[in-house]
């Protein structure tokens, strides 16, 4: 018997209680589906091979393999469903960060406004070149195996010693915008800085899959780079242990 859904539940695969009733809703993206089918096939094959020698291991391989295979073939993952993950549409990155710098507001503002300073401590920026008062050219590298990306940005609004707002120019590979605000902290505690940053991931095709893998990493990278601003302007350096000895081979 076909289930008739009221309009508001159509295409969600859920009934009014929120329970999943339609297993055909696709919540796994294409690259992940291909991976699931391949991995599932491998596990099933390996499970069958070890059925005699290691029956317990074989059984778990067969179960896991079947689940993976079904998930890939159908495009529906029951675990994603339960955890509320939508693997098809990647999340945009929206970061808000607040910190207090033990320096006067004018100095903190001026240091940030000279955009060419940013690569001194934002480790993933290769360079920022100011082309005129409002426009700049940015170059970044997010991993040693990935090529550099570059984009142009403009300052869309600013008030001296108070805020700077920027946005990447239309058509940029990295579509981003943000704002940084500076306020006096009470009682001579320096300057309160609030950074808001948003990044819109590309949607569609293989880019979706890449963005989905990349976004959580990118969010940490951006947060660390913003933190480095405070470390650099206060302590004059970004603390590190990279390059120190250890007993790890």
């Amino acid at each position: 018997m076909a289930i008739i859904y009221p309009d508001m539940y159509r295409n969600t695969g859920k009934d009014h209680t929120g329970m999943m009733t339609d297993p055909q809703v696709i919540n796994v993206n294409t690259p992940e589906r291909i991976f699931s089918v391949i991995a599932g096939t491998f596990l099933i094959y390996s499970g069958i091979k070890s059925l005699v020698g290691h029956p317990v291991a074989a059984a778990s391989k067969l179960v896991a393999g079947s689940v993976l295979f079904a998930r890939g073939a159908s495009g529906h993952c029951p675990i994603y469903e339960r955890t509320g993950t939508d693997g098809v549409r990647p999340q945009n990155i929206n970061i808000k960060q607040y910190f207090t710098v033990n320096k006067p507001r004018e100095e903190v503002y001026q240091f940030w406004r000279k955009l060419e300073n940013l690569p001194l401590f934002m480790r993933h920026l290769e360079s920022v070149t100011q082309t005129d008062e409002k426009h700049s050219h940015w170059k970044a590298k997010f991993g040693s195996y990935l090529p550099s990306v570059s984009w142009d940005a403009q300052i869309v609004k600013e008030r001296e010693n108070e805020f700077i707002g920027w946005s990447a120019l239309e058509g940029s590979v990295i579509e981003n915008a943000g704002k940084v605000e500076f306020k006096d902290a009470p009682g001579g505690r320096g300057t309160e800085v609030q950074v808001v940053f948003s990044y819109h991931a590309p949607v569609g095709g293989i880019a979706t899959g890449i963005a989905k893998l990349f976004n959580p990493v990118a969010e940490n990278i951006i947060r660390e780079d913003v933190r480095n601003f405070k470390q650099y302007i206060e302590a004059g350096e970004v603390p590190t242990t990279t390059g120190q000895p250890s007993g790890r081979k």
């Binding site: 940490n220 947060r223 660390e224 933190r227 405070k230 470390q231 302590a235 603390p239 242990t241």
Partner: peptide
Amino acid sequence: DNSNPHAI
């Protein structure tokens, strides 16, 4: 505030 490289 600034001496821990693994602040995160």
